[in-house]
Design a binder for these strands. Sequence first.
DNA 1: TTCGTTATTTTGGTATGACCAAATTGCGTC
DNA 2: GACGCAATTTGGTCATACCAAAATAACGAA
Lengths: 248, 248
Amino acid sequence: MLGMSETELGPTAASQGGGRAADGIIAQLEVMIVSGELVDGSTLPPERELMARFGASRTVVREALTTLTSRGFLEHRPRFRPIVRKPTYDIVLQGVDGMVRHLMASRSSVRNLYEMRLFVEKGLVRETALHARRDDIRALRAALVANETAIDDSEAFYRTDVAFHAVLYRVPRNPIFPAIHDAYTSWLAPHWGRMLRSPERNAANYRQHQAILAAVLDRDPDGAEEAMTRHLEAAWELVRVTFDGEQT
Amino acid sequence: MLGMSETELGPTAASQGGGRAADGIIAQLEVMIVSGELVDGSTLPPERELMARFGASRTVVREALTTLTSRGFLEHRPRFRPIVRKPTYDIVLQGVDGMVRHLMASRSSVRNLYEMRLFVEKGLVRETALHARRDDIRALRAALVANETAIDDSEAFYRTDVAFHAVLYRVPRNPIFPAIHDAYTSWLAPHWGRMLRSPERNAANYRQHQAILAAVLDRDPDGAEEAMTRHLEAAWELVRVTFDGEQT
DNA sequence: TTCGTTATTTTGGTATGACCAAATTGCGTC
DNA sequence: GACGCAATTTGGTCATACCAAAATAACGAA
């Protein structure tokens, strides 16, 4: 592909397609990245070399790089060489980050997202109660212990709290779930950060986690779902008050 | 903001921030779009006017436009004026379209995504069985009738099939769900398209839908979930065979 | 020789100015 | 007032130039 004729793949592809010249470059780089020809983590050649390779101006090359970056195929830090990134579920979700953050500006959107989380975690605990393996249970126990240990340190507790829920997302062994969890936590974090915390509240939280695990150990999906619902709705109440004044 | 001093907001913001100059413009336009100052559907001023407004070169202005476009805030067709687009849940998911399609190249990824769908729809039917309103039920019945009517026309049947499931996604009254449904169907469509169809299979599908509705009417979440699981796993079997030969 | 330091060269970010082709606008005609 | 053609705008692309930061090479001290 390096030996391609730029009169064929470059200008031609651009003009016929009606699209921009950058599209051709984007497509080619995309293929190279996905196919592994460009190794994940490696850096791209300098722009001036790319323009030679693709027979395009720097303008076009840079437009291609910009687009690929926002599509998640490249990591383009201000003054550094672009780094090749093979799309993963995490990066996919990261891609919508900006938009979601704006959606999050309104209270109703936060509630919508939180409902999604509630929905997912209800399903997850059911799944866990029904199909958890020994090591899942072990992980849950461990997370709970860490939880308890951190009750007096709200900062640390928050982390162990997130970690507890993360265990549930790993139960289905489907990589999409952990990616979703990461997205949730990062999107909801700003609101959770404003939530007042205290050892008492942490302890309450801990007990709710405990109840969830208990139901899971009983292999009781309905009970687990109910415990999870109570847990998350309680958390929502604490967050909701931070919205005072905001209407939408 | 139009009367801003370009020596302050333009170059300065760029150089101090360490980021690119485009970032400032991106941020400003983003705010204007989200705040509604730039009306959704309206067109942006010409690039040459924007460069005057923002005190930046066309290079930078165009980079901002490109980025905003791939972030879903603008719709930028090749030779036309960019159109303002307020982000919606649909557009958010559309944004990751390209990456997901690549992920979908491997069989395991398709399975992962399909499992997610199964997970979601299991939760949805439970929700429906427990909390469906009269009009939800009505919509399900209607979808089922349309379903039956189209049994002999595989093309039409596929549409009514999708429509049936779509009803479930509307039950929670959370706009994120329908957006997810659209995403699923568009991402999985290429594989579903390859699936062999016939009136017999359509009829079987119809009966499965019927079973789901029956369980919902019985207000039986477990039964509904089971019916849904059977339904989707059966469909998966039909799709799976189209993967023959592919390993990953 | 090795490790820091300092020159030098690359390289990315931005600005200009120009050109073409398609889109838009304006105008004169039917 | 509808229609078609000419003039003007506007978006896409290129070439060039400059600066500052980054990468690299050269160099001197330990």
